[in-house]
Amino acid sequence: MTSEVVTEFTVNGQAVRLDLDPRESLLDVLRERLGLTGSKKGCDHGQCGACTVHVDGRRVVSCLLPAVQVNGRSVRTIEGVAGPDGALHPLQQAFVDHDALQCGYCTPGQVMSGLACIAEGNAGADDDIREHMSGNLCRCGAYPGILAAVRAAAGRREG
C-alpha cells in the first residue's frame, strides 16, 4: 500500500507542506496541487526539458523527480523569475527581443535552463551554449533565437 509522505519545501520562496503520494512527480505537484502551470509536461520522461525547474539552485527535469525527494529543499519555477512588479527578467526580455519562441510551449523550460546555463558559467561561447542547452528541445526550431537570447543575457556579442 502507498502511504502518504509529509513533504516540506519552498517554491519561489514560499513554504509548502503537503502529504504526498510517493508516485507524484514534482512536475505534477507543481501543476496539479500548487496551480503553477508554467512548467510544462512535454514528454514526461526527462527527454524534452519543458519541465525544467531549479532545485537548490540547480536545474533539473521535474518530471523525473519524485516530489518526496524535494523535502527540505528550495524549488524555483518560471513563475518565480519575473520581478515582483511583473517586470520581465532580462533573459525573458531577451527571448522577446530575439524571437526565441514560436508556439511558446518549451519556453518556460528554455528560460529556466538558460538562467542556469549562464549561472553555471556555460554561456562563454556559442558552442558552450548549444551544448549546455541541448537538454531543451524546441519543435518549432527556434534554436537560433534561443542561442541569441542566452548569449545576449550573458552579456556577450556574437561568436
Binding site: V60, V61, L65
Partner: peptide
C-alpha cells in the same frame, strides 16, 4: 544526458 539529468 543533459545538464538537467547530470544534476540529478
Amino acid at each position: 544526458a543533459s545538464q538537467q539529468l547530470r544534476n540529478m
